[in-house]
Amino acid sequence: MSVVVLGAGMHPWGKWGRPFTEYGLAAARAALRDADVSWPEVGFLVGADTIRNGYPGFVAGATYARALGWSGARIASCYAACASGAQAMDIARTRILAGLCDVALVVGADSTPKGFFKPVGGDRPDDPDWLRFRLLGATNPAYFGLYARRRMALHGSTPGDFAAVKVKNARAGALNPLARYRKPVTAEEVLASPMVADPLRLMDICATSDGGAAVVLASEDYARRRGVTDPVRLAAVSTVTPVFPNAVLELPEFATDSCAAVPPPARPFRAAIAHAAYEEAGLGPEDVSFAEVYDLSTALELDWMEDVGLCPPGEADKLLRAGDTALGGRLPVNPSGGLASFGEAIPAQAIAQVCELTWQLRGRAGDRQVAGARVGLAVNQGLFGHGSAVIATR
C-alpha cells in the first residue's frame, strides 16, 4: 500500500496581520475542495505547530479541528521548526500505512513578526542554535553570510552568482499567484539593495511571511475507490537527525573536541536528509525532474543543490549560469519561486513545497510548469537537528 496526495491547498503568502488560524483554515478548505473530500470524511488531522502564536499554536491540531468544526476526527500536533510540516505529513502517512485511517488532513500556518526570527521558547543553553544567537551574536542573516563567504572561498562563487539565484526565483515567483513577491528583478537591483550580512544583501535573504498550506493524504485504495487512477504518490518522507560528531549544526566548519577526535560521518547533515529519502524511494538524484530546496539565502540554494546530489560540490554555479536550474532548464530548482518569493511561514513551508510538487506532477502549475515532471524532491532544515526531505512521484 502507498500513500497519495489527494488534495493540496494554500492561503496566499504576505504580511496580512491576521491570526494564523485564518490562513490554515483557508488552506485546509482549499485542499479539501481539491481532493473532493468533505471535512467529516477526514479520519485524522495533524497540525504543524507555530509556537510564536500562543497556546492555539502549540495545539495546532485541535485549533484547526475546532475551526473546521468538531467532527470526532483524531488529531495530533507536532513541532520541528522548519521541518514541522514534513514531520506532520510523516505522522499522517504512518497512520494511513498502519491501516488506522483512509484519509488524513495536514495543515500548517504562521503569522510572523516583522524582521528576522529570534529564538522563542525561553532560554535553551543546551541548544547550539540558541547559543549561536547568544554567544556569537550570529543572527540568521549573519550565519547565512558566513555560509556565503565559505562558498566564495571554497568554490569561487561571486555576489553576481548569488544575485542570479534571486533573479531566477523571482522570475518563477512572478508566475505564482500564491507568492508574496510577484515582480521580476534584475541582478543590478539585487546588487544595489542594502548590505545586510556581507556578502549578502537585502534581496539575497528571504523575508518572514504570513501564510498557510495543507494537503489531504489518503491510501491508494481509497483514492482508487474515489476514481483517482493516476495519483501523486509520496514515495518517501525523510526526517533524519545529524550523525555524531557533527554536533554544531549551523556552523559545521567550527571545530569541536568531538570532531577533532572522531572521524566525521560519511555525509554532512543536509546530504543525509536527502539521501535517506532517495534510499526509501528507491531513486537517486539522477531521477529528479525538479526540486524545491531551502533557499533561506541565495547562496544556500547553491549549497543545497550540491548537498542533495543534484550536482557535484562546486558545480551548482555552473548549472545556474547555464540556465539549467531555471524554468525551462534541464533541472528546475524552486519553480514555485522558493522562499525568495514566498518568505518563511515556518509550519507551512514544508507543506507548501509538497503542494508545489503535487501541482507540478499533475501538470497543473500553469506558466511555471516543468515539462515531463515525474519525480519531485523537496528538502529543508530546521533548528535543533530537524531536517526533512519529501519525494513525490507520478
Score class of each variant (00 low, 15 high):
residue 5 V to G: 00
residue 7 G to Y: 05
residue 15 K to W: 10
residue 18 R to Q: 13
residue 24 G to R: 10
residue 42 V to K: 03
residue 44 F to G: 00
residue 56 P to D: 05
residue 60 A to M: 03
residue 65 A to M: 08
residue 65 A to N: 04
residue 66 R to K: 14
residue 72 G to N: 07
residue 76 A to T: 12
residue 79 Y to Q: 08
residue 87 Q to T: 12
residue 88 A to K: 03
residue 90 D to E: 15
residue 90 D to F: 12
residue 91 I to H: 06
residue 94 T to Y: 13
residue 94 T to F: 12
residue 96 I to K: 00
residue 97 L to N: 10
residue 101 C to K: 02
residue 101 C to P: 01
residue 102 D to I: 00
residue 103 V to F: 02
residue 105 L to P: 02
residue 108 G to D: 06
residue 114 K to P: 06
residue 118 K to E: 14
residue 118 K to D: 04
residue 119 P to I: 01
residue 157 S to M: 06
residue 157 S to G: 09
residue 158 T to V: 07
residue 158 T to M: 01
residue 158 T to D: 03
residue 163 A to E: 00
residue 163 A to Q: 02
residue 167 V to L: 05
residue 169 N to P: 01
residue 181 Y to R: 11
residue 185 V to I: 14
residue 188 E to Y: 08
residue 190 V to G: 01
residue 205 I to T: 03
residue 209 S to A: 15
residue 211 G to L: 09
residue 217 L to T: 01
residue 225 R to Y: 11
residue 228 V to M: 07
residue 244 F to I: 07
residue 246 N to F: 11
residue 247 A to S: 14
residue 251 L to C: 10
residue 258 S to Q: 15
residue 259 C to K: 15
residue 259 C to D: 15
residue 262 V to F: 15
residue 268 P to M: 12
residue 269 F to M: 06
residue 273 I to A: 02
residue 277 A to P: 09
residue 283 L to F: 05
residue 294 Y to F: 15
residue 294 Y to T: 00
residue 298 T to A: 15
residue 307 D to Y: 02
residue 308 V to L: 13
residue 311 C to Q: 08
residue 313 P to C: 06
residue 314 G to K: 09
residue 316 A to L: 09
residue 317 D to N: 13
residue 317 D to G: 14
residue 340 A to L: 08
residue 349 Q to I: 08
residue 351 I to K: 05
residue 352 A to F: 13
residue 353 Q to M: 11
residue 360 Q to I: 05
residue 361 L to M: 04
residue 363 G to W: 10
residue 390 V to D: 01
residue 391 I to P: 00
residue 391 I to D: 03
residue 393 T to V: 14
